[in-house]
Computed example of a mutant assay.
Amino acid sequence: MRLSEDEIEISYGKTILFYQSITESGKRRGIYEHHHTAIEISLCCKGSGAYIINGKEHPISPYDIIIHASDEPHYLTKIIEGEAIEMLNIRFEPMLLWSDKELSWLMQFFMKENRCRKNKISSSNPIASEISRLFLEIKKEVDTKDVGYELMVKTLLINILVIINRAYTSIPENYQIEGVSHTSKQLEKALMFINENIENKLTLDIIAQSAAMNKTYFSSCFKKLNGISLWDYITIKRVEKAIELLKTTNLTKIDIAMKCGFNSSANFYKAFRRVTGKNPSFFSRGNN
């Protein structure tokens, strides 16, 4: 469960989600394999167990750092009986980086070409203590919300990403991510269009047209920069919106399906199983 959650708006359509979570042993609800469009970095503050990421087990204990790139299936498990794992988590869409010319190089760590990419930085690694310190500074900024805290959170996150890229990237410094230099603005428009029309019928023709790009090239650049295919992105966003409605309203499942852009209940259930491994009922208001 999430003890606290703050969505920090950096600019229109670009946010950083910072939340504190606690997962108890023996509590199966909330522990399920899932994946999302965002990048997520987490600090284990208390407890021990294991993270399963892309089918690989990563034991975790206090001050370990866990990193999920876009579309990486993951879940917590093996929590010691009678204990709980407490974590600080920061989540953001890749667009926060690649849409900014000065920050786009920070995407290098998350690129498939990076042979040094890791999902876990052990507490015994010297950079883990520095990242932990930055996490705690972010928490302090979010808790106090002094003037300009949004900029401070972004700056501290950039510091974390610089440290990670310095330590774990095999990509040459002069490497240019395909599509960043001359298509980032068009792709940004397309993402805004998708997010604002997620409940409507979306086709590759319509989306590529919103970006004023060739369909094939658009699809290639989209996956390269976001780490996920266009249709997987749309499906996950629709499921995320549906989960929020299931948790907060009494709408029927078929009404929620229609509000989230699914054209049939069969596709609605299929998408949930694919993204979360669960049926929609798992997330309904009465079960939370």
Rank of each mutant, 00 (worst) to 15 (best):
P62M: 06
N54P: 03
K253M: 15
T144G: 07
L76C: 04
K185N: 13
L43S: 12
I207V: 15
E83Y: 01
K145T: 06
I207Y: 05
E244V: 13
R166Y: 12
S132M: 05
E83D: 13
D255Q: 10
Q186S: 14
K247R: 15
H34G: 03
S99T: 11
I41N: 07
A242T: 07
L225T: 06
I194F: 01
V162P: 08
E7V: 13
K185T: 14
R91D: 13
D255I: 02
N125D: 14
F18T: 02
K46F: 03
M87K: 09
N114L: 10
I177H: 02
A128I: 12
L151P: 00
K278I: 12
V162G: 12
Q186L: 06
I164P: 05
I22E: 14
V142N: 11
E113Y: 00
T216K: 15
I256G: 04
T23Y: 01
V180H: 05
I67C: 10
N279A: 15
C221M: 09
S11L: 01
I31Y: 04
A50C: 08
F222E: 14
K270D: 07
E196C: 01
I41A: 10
Y168V: 10
E240A: 09
P280D: 13
L251I: 11
R28V: 07
T249A: 09
I79H: 00
H35Q: 14
F110C: 12
S264Q: 02
A190W: 01
I80H: 02
A84D: 09
L251Q: 02
K259Q: 13
M213P: 02
A242N: 07
P73I: 10
I164C: 06
V180E: 08
G148V: 02
S265W: 03
T77L: 06
I60M: 14
R285W: 04
I243P: 07
I131H: 05
C260F: 01
I41P: 10
H36S: 04
Y217N: 08
I138D: 01
S42F: 04
L17V: 08
A212V: 04
R29E: 01
S281Y: 04
N287G: 02
Y19V: 04
S220R: 09
K120A: 07
G47P: 00
S229M: 00
M95A: 15
A266T: 14
T252C: 09
I254Y: 02
G30P: 09
M95I: 15
A271I: 03
R166W: 12
D6S: 12
K215H: 03
L97C: 11
L157G: 14
M152V: 09
L17R: 03
I90A: 09
F193P: 13
I131G: 08
Y168L: 15
L157P: 10
L245W: 00
G55K: 04
A167E: 14
Y269R: 11
P94I: 05
D146L: 13
E5G: 03
L245G: 07
A128E: 09
L251T: 04
W105C: 15
Q108P: 00
P59K: 05
S265G: 10
L251P: 03
K56A: 00
K27D: 08
M192D: 12
D255L: 04
F110W: 10
I39M: 11
